[in-house]
Structures are given as structure tokens and as C-alpha cells.
């Protein structure tokens, strides 16, 4: 799904994109079209030929989502531990910190979007596949609690392969922790907007990602419970071509709308405006 050699960075294997001068052009992994990097970036990494939405890292997403200079990161100091002493986890964390643009698989903070104050969380697939371990769960729960405290709508951009296996049962519990936080947000009457991006699967999808008051998705994103290969399909069952995509989830009533990347600002503006006009004025305390 990734674009080979985007931004002229070396590919994983160290070689430049095949047959393409390094740094000037990229090849769309979906339609194989050679695209000038400048055009590709100007188009927010959406292929100008086939419209394929290539993945953004958290900072690229932030840049095209929040108002300039409005983002104030919170909890950037949270760092993953290795509680299980799981094989190769430390090495993987170390590597992720060096290669990812984010310090963990989600960044969270306050910002304004189209002028509206929000709490925003953006998952970063470049950090260990966006997997949800203790830090990711904690950052999301705390971000939601900031939303409750400040009475700001909460927006989550998802991108994750699921729970972070290397933290064992602790990572599974982050599903419950984040979902419970969304529950509190709801009892306090504060809106929760989810934007599903490629890919959102496993425990990340089966928790807070599915609980938005409004759930949007980018076109063509992989969205599902277990991967296409993981799911043990019954013999003779043919999977539809769009299985576990945004389009599949829309068809089955799991998401509200598919919104192309360029149209997301307007969609968010419309929603935030609606929520600002309808905001519950007095605080409702959860558990009452």
C-alpha cells in the first residue's frame, strides 16, 4: 500500500524506487503511475491518476487537519516500557523511535480545526504499525478526559494494525480502557468524531474506533476485525472484492460516510459547527 520512495527517502531495502530517479518522482503502488513528488504532495498524497489515498504519518495528517500553529501536544513524555520482557520489543521500540516521525503510535493534543477548539488524536502507522499498547491507550484515555474537562469535542484519526502483541494482556486491556473513556465522554454529552484511515484493524477497530458519534472513513482504507487472511473463512465462501474496506463497512452500516481527503476539512467543519450550536451547557457527571 505504501508508496515507494516518497519524498525521495530511501526505501526499506535502501534502494531508490525502481527505475525512478530518487527524490523527484514516485510510483503509485495502486496504479503504478509515475507521479512527480511535487504534484503528489500537493495533492496530499492522493494519487492524481487513480485517486488512491496513500498513508500519511501523524505529522503530515496534523498539518492538513488543524489550523496553523494551533496544536499543543499533550503527554508526549509517555514512553513504552517492556513489562513482559518480550522478545525483540526493546529493539523494535528503539527502531521505531529512530525511523518514525512520532515518539509513539499516537500523538494527542488540543488544537483548533476550522476555528473550533478540539482535542485531537492522530495515530501514526509508521510507529510499530500504529499498534495500541499501554502508552497509546493511556494517551487516548487522557486526551478524552481533557475533552471532558475542557468540554471540547474529541476527534480521533485512526491507523493501526491492532493491539500491540508485545505488551500481552496489558495491550488487550487498552481496548477496554479507551472504550470506557469514550463512554464517559458520552455521558458528559461531548461529541466524539472518528476518522478511519488506512489501515484500521483488530483491537483498535474493535474498541474506540467503532464508538464515534459520527464515523468517517477515507476511501479505500482497509477497515476490519481480523485481516483477510487471519479470518478463518468457511469453505466455499467467496469474499467480496471490497471485503474489509471503507466501502464494505459503509455498505454494512458500520460507518457514516466515506470522505475523500480533500473534503475532510469541510466535513469536520460542518460537524464541529453543528456540535458547537448544540453543545450541552451544563456538566453531566458520569455515573449519576
Amino acid at each position: 500500500m505504501a508508496v515507494s520512495g516518497w519524498f525521495g527517502r530511501k526505501r526499506k531495502d535502501g534502494s531508490p524506487a525502481e527505475g525512478v530517479p530518487d527524490g523527484i518522482a514516485v510510483k503509485c503502488s495502486s496504479c503504478s503511475q509515475i507521479l512527480f513528488v511535487r504534484d503528489f504532495e500537493r495533492n496530499q498524497k492522493v494519487c492524481t491518476k487513480c485517486g488512491h489515498h496513500h498513508r500519511l504519518n501523524a505529522h503530515e495528517r496534523l498539518e492538513i487537519t488543524v489550523d496553523e500553529d494551533s496544536f499543543e501536544e499533550i503527554d508526549a513524555v509517555l514512553q513504552s516500557a517492556d513489562p513482559l520482557l518480550f522478545p525483540e520489543y526493546r529493539e523494535k521500540l528503539h527502531k521505531a523511535k529512530n525511523t518514525s516521525t512520532s515518539s509513539e503510535a499516537v500523538i494527542t493534543g488540543t488544537a483548533t480545526v476550522e476555528g473550533f477548539p478540539v482535542v485531537i488524536g492522530i495515530a501514526d502507522f509508521t510507529f510499530m504499525g500504529g499498534s495500541m499498547g499501554s502508552v497509546v491507550g493511556e494517551k487516548i484515555a487522557r486526551a478524552i478526559e481533557v475533552g471532558i474537562e475542557k468540554r471540547f469535542p474529541v476527534i480521533m484519526f485512526t491507523a493501526s494494525g491492532g493491539a500491540r502483541m508485545q505488551e500481552g494482556l496489558l495491550s488487550l486491556m487498552q481496548m477496554a480502557k479507551t472504550s470506557a473513556a469514550v463512554g464517559r465522554l458520552g455521558t458528559n454529552g461531548i461529541p466524539f468524531i472518528v476518522v478511519l484511515t488506512d489501515p484500521t484493524t483488530g483491537g483498535t477497530y474493535a474498541s474506540y474506533s467503532c464508538l464515534g458519534d459520527v464515523i468517517l472513513a477515507e476511501p479505500g482504507a482497509i477497515i476490519g476485525f481480523a485481516g483477510r487472511r487471519v479470518g478463518n473463512q468457511e469453505v466455499g465462501v467467496k469474499l467480496p472484492d471490497n471485503f474489509q474496506t471503507s466501502e464494505f463497512q459503509l455498505e454494512h452500516g458500520m460507518i457514516d460516510r466515506i470522505v475523500p481527503r480533500k473534503d475532510l476539512p469541510l466535513a469536520l467543519k460542518t460537524l464541529l459547527e453543528f456540535f458547537a450550536l448544540s453543545a450541552v451547557k451544563e456538566s453531566v457527571i458520569a455515573g449519576n
Binding site: 513489562p83 515518539s103 502508552v135 505488551e167
Partner: peptide
Amino acid sequence: LRSMGVFQEKVS
């Protein structure tokens, strides 16, 4: 549920 998780909270 909120107490579940093991992480470090310090400036690296």
C-alpha cells in the same frame, strides 16, 4: 480500567 497499563512518564 484506567489503572491498567505499564509505561514510563518522563522526559527522554
